[in-house]
């Protein structure tokens, strides 16, 4: 089972990132669950969700220890770095986080300037997709081509075709390698 937190500012697409990942997880034939934070937290401008992807039945929607923390800004790191298991993976958006920031020494940190990547590619709302590209390169959770196809599938089912997403995804992958 993979347990992951996605967190960032409202509008950075962290909830969409969570949905895309469980959509791909479901299409892989796994059990999936997504648990949003809801209520007053949302009005403060931060957003996060907990997702789990597992071959087995999933018990609780709540994450006590995460395998992966997918962050899009510094407050998300402040809040969720501590929830990572030893050896867990922290994804950091280096466009928005101080490069001298220090991290726990028992976790893996992968940094990528995903806000800049998305802006440079003319798809400023695609920073989350670039970070999913980073995730695809940094883990073996998904076959990257399968994941990309599922991202497109998810948006197409909503009547949206966003060709620039592919560029963001691939640039994210490249940056992480």
């Amino acid at each position: 089972m993979t347990e992951m937190i996605c967190a960032g500012f409202g509008g950075q697409g962290v909830l969409t990132a969570g949905m895309l990942l469980i959509h791909a997880g479901m299409k892989q034939g796994n059990n999936v669950i997504f648990y949003p934070s809801y209520g007053s937290e949302m009005r403060g401008g931060t957003a996060n969700c907990a997702i789990k992807i597992s071959e087995k039945k999933i018990a609780s929607p709540v994450i006590r220890q995460a395998d992966i923390v997918f962050t899009m800004n510094a407050p998300a790191i402040d809040k969720f770095e501590s929830i990572l298991k030893p050896g867990g993976l922290l994804l950091v958006n280096s466009s928005l986080v101080d490069e001298n920031r220090t991290y726990r020494d028992d976790i893996r940190v992968v940094k990528a300037p995903v806000t800049d990547i998305a802006a440079d590619l003319g798809n400023p709302r695609g920073a989350n997709i670039a970070m999913i590209g980073v995730l695809a390169a940094a883990t073996d959770l998904f076959d990257p081509e399968f994941l990309l196809a599922q991202i497109n599938d998810y948006f197409e089912a909503k009547g949206k075709k966003i060709p620039a997403n592919e560029a963001c995804f691939r640039k994210g992958m490249e940056t992480a390698q």
């Binding site: 949905m19 469980i22 059990n31």
Partner: peptide, 9 residues
Amino acid sequence: AAIGQMIEA
């Protein structure tokens, strides 16, 4: 609230 708010297949 958990059953109501969570997303599953």
